[in-house]
C-alpha cells in the first residue's frame, strides 16, 4: 500500500515507478469473492427455508400419481460431485507446484465430473412424471435443482476459462486468484448440493 507514495501524475509517463504491481494494488479479489459467496448463500438459504415450510405445511405435498423420488441415480450423482471437490483440490496443488500438465489433467477431470453431474440431472428430469407447475412440490423441486444446476454450469464455464488461461504463458505465475476462486465456488456448489440432497431426496 505504501508504494503509492510516488504520484504517477508527477512522474514522467515513461517511468511509472511502480515496484511490484501486486504490492501497489494489493489483491482484494479473493476477499471480495468470499463476501459475495456468503451473500449468495442467502438466496439458497431462503429457498431451503421455503422448501421446509412447504414440506411441513402443504396438505397434498406430492402431486397425484407421484409416490416419491428415486434416490439411486441422484446418489451416484452426489458421489461424483462430492468427489470432484477433491479432484479440483489435487489440480490446485499441481498448479501450486508449477506442474501445469498435472493441473490441466485433474482440472479437466473435475470438469468432466461436473458435466456428468449435469447430464445425470438432465436424464433424471426428463424421466420425472411431474413438471414445474405441478403443485408446490413440482415448483420447489425444479426451482431448487434448477437453480443449483445453473451454478454447476457456471462453475464448469469458469473452469473452462481457467483451463484456457493455463495456456497463456506465465498466466498463473503471479496470482492463482482465478483458479482459487473457481475452486472455492466449486466447493460452495458442492456443499449446497449436499444440503439440497438431504432436503429433497433423503427427507421424503
Amino acid at each position: 500500500m505504501n508504494s503509492t507514495e510516488v504520484d504517477p501524475l508527477l512522474t514522467a509517463p515513461a517511468a511509472p515507478s511502480h515496484a511490484p504491481a501486486a504490492e501497489a494494488h494489493p489483491d482484494h479479489r479473493m476477499f471480495g469473492f468470499i463476501v459475495f459467496l456468503l451473500s449468495e448463500s442467502v438466496v439458497f438459504l431462503s429457498f431451503f427455508a421455503g422448501y421446509i415450510v412447504y414440506k411441513t405445511t402443504t396438505p397434498n405435498w406430492l402431486p397425484v400419481g407421484v409416490t416419491g423420488l428415486d434416490v439411486r441415480e441422484p446418489a451416484i450423482n452426489t458421489v461424483v460431485l462430492v468427489s470432484s471437490s477433491f479432484v479440483i483440490y489435487i489440480a490446485e496443488r499441481y498448479l501450486h507446484d508449477k506442474n501445469l500438465w498435472g493441473f490441466r489433467i485433474f482440472w479437466l477431470l473435475t470438469m468432466a465430473m461436473g458435466i456428468y453431474f449435469l447430464y445425470g440431472q438432465a436424464v433424471e428430469w426428463s424421466g420425472l412424471p411431474f413438471g414445474f407447475t405441478d403443485g408446490v412440490f413440482g415448483g420447489a423441486f425444479y426451482l431448487l435443482t434448477g437453480f443449483h444446476g445453473l451454478h454447476v454450469m457456471t462453475g464448469v464455464l469458469l473452469q473452462l476459462i481457467m483451463l484456457g488461461r493455463s495456456f497463456i504463458p506465465g498466466n498463473y505465475d503471479h496470482s492463482e486468484y482465478g483458479t482459487a476462486a473457481t475452486s472455492l465456488f466449486w466447493h460452495f456448489v458442492d456443499v449446497i448440493w449436499i444440503i439440497l440432497f438431504v432436503l429433497i431426496y433423503i427427507w421424503q
Binding site: 456468503l38 451473500s39 442467502v42 438466496v43 438459504l45 431462503s46 421455503g50
Partner: peptide, 10 residues
C-alpha cells in the same frame, strides 16, 4: 448483503 438475497429469492 445478507438481506437482499432473500428478496431476490422471493
Amino acid at each position: 448483503l445478507f438481506g437482499l438475497p432473500a428478496l431476490t429469492a422471493a
